[in-house]
Design a binder for these strands. Sequence first.
DNA 1: CTCAGAAATGTTATCGATAACATCGGCTTT
DNA 2: AAAGCCGATGTTATCGATAACATTTCTGAG
Lengths: 327, 327
Amino acid sequence: MTDVARLAGVSHQTVSRVLNDHPNVKEQTRIRVRAAIAELGYRPNRAARALVTGRSQLIGVVARNSTLFGPATMLSEFEQAAADSGFAVSVGSVRELDRSSISAVVDRHLDQRVAGLVVIANTASATEALAEIPEDLPVVFIDGDPASGRPLVTVDQVAGARAATRHLLDAGHETVWHVSGPTDWFDSAGRIQGWRQTLEEAGAEVPPLLSADWSAAEGYRTGQMLARMPEVTAIFTANDHLALGILRALHERGRRVPHDVSVVGFDDVPEAAYFIPPLTTVRQAFGDVARAALSLLLGQMRDYTGMADQIVVPPQLIVRESAPRRI
Amino acid sequence: MTDVARLAGVSHQTVSRVLNDHPNVKEQTRIRVRAAIAELGYRPNRAARALVTGRSQLIGVVARNSTLFGPATMLSEFEQAAADSGFAVSVGSVRELDRSSISAVVDRHLDQRVAGLVVIANTASATEALAEIPEDLPVVFIDGDPASGRPLVTVDQVAGARAATRHLLDAGHETVWHVSGPTDWFDSAGRIQGWRQTLEEAGAEVPPLLSADWSAAEGYRTGQMLARMPEVTAIFTANDHLALGILRALHERGRRVPHDVSVVGFDDVPEAAYFIPPLTTVRQAFGDVARAALSLLLGQMRDYTGMADQIVVPPQLIVRESAPRRI
DNA sequence: CTCAGAAATGTTATCGATAACATCGGCTTT
DNA sequence: AAAGCCGATGTTATCGATAACATTTCTGAG
């Protein structure tokens, strides 16, 4: 930095001002400094800046260690958005979203003096671990508890489930069965709620809830049971991989999709269009969620009024052959 | 730190020595300092340490922005391994592995003074961007060019492809068709090579290579073509999603799997066992790769002899119904 | 033409750690 | 017993930036 200052014929402080877009720098000086920076290939030392400001150009992400499509996509999209705004992303994943694991990860992030934190908190247990986070650190939740009052971005799970259920009822089914994800996930809860509400409003009978994890394996097991029940003609599953397992179970039992049973998934994984048959599903705009979370976070970093915005991103029903408009 | 020193009745330097496990500290002093640290809840400022040592507790990862199963899993596993060793991971993803994108990401990492770099470089273009990386920064490649002579961890793609092809030939097929991934990926190249070698060694005819991207969509398109060719009885695809598309195309054309055509995939995604029919595939041990990469990196950080180790992790054939042992 | 006040720039202190060197006792060695 | 060495600890400088305050230069009003 001193070298740059010398070359530009100014003090190091002025270089710092140029770097930080401080207003009180003459245009001409600014240009000279920029030229010196370019000529020397100078790049500021972020560690030094972090030391003096107490804050880095790093955004910490707390997420469950997972290869699930949703979380993985979210992380990838967020990283991309952050990079576009000049922030690096430090990932801190945990095996379980319990309090002590989260504390440990948050501590690691605090050590790094992250400028802000994004918590992908899809279960209630994560929300509790809030207490750990200092008041003055910008935080945004993705997928957390909508009732928390904290800044939060989430996909409207209820609306997605309603659209899926409505679609099946409109197609002429008397009722719709639901295979949910783990019930402690907010995503699952919202989907269950939307499904149940829609059935009740339509005056349809609400079948018993079947809950599973997110895997094709459990979808298959549940599907084996459902395939034996002739009264089951419409199934809404909490994600596409569950749907895949169910499709196979139905296939093995000789129940044709969509002729005998209609199936709707959730997520719209890229390969959903190539299931047998192509899957009707609900697409979540993860990219939009990630970008919204980032802008909320940047907003918090700038002005410091605890504007507890909550952004809800609407999902979109994608109709394919596994559940056509009319049966 | 000064507070800790005062409480323990020593100088701040001695505190630093305790922190860094310096040998020349009396046991009794060490204990006193540790107690003071615990009592005050002191945690060292990593930015300050990074400033003076020029190196942080952060490992940078350069990867293509991708939701593909392989890369996403690799990243997740690596992060987990790094966390277990007390390192944070900063992700820098790029849309394309071209030279300028990589430079930009590497620069961002250098700004953060990362302690080491992991490059998930699955195409040749990435390898070229090496030049950017300073000599003295520990670097490990995952999936890079085995001929580069750089420290590298990779799955033995050739062996995986050989096992898959061999399996199909052993089952009685005269030859095996291959739908590859993008030919500029090392993974693709290795799989093509293993496939071709095995056919040649067995004296089987080598059918024309069909290359695709990694998506189910292209698998489907390629599958539509293959399904019309009665001489095609065995297909080895470069990943499971391609296989999924092909399964559907075969299904639509009324060609039964495995009765008429056998299909083998690559990756063993969690849902592969629930395809219709369950997919025979080659499993890659991403966790092992990630851990190996980390240990290589840590090795480089410690002693600085440019030990250009290369670790090759063997893959494993998982036999399921889409390609049974005997047709 | 002078002077207040703002704009532009410079000087010095500071963040919190490690590096390098300095000091001070004991303990061997001859 | 003096010299020399080593282990334990303390002192001071340093990393590279920003903050806070000081100083100079410009600008416009009276």
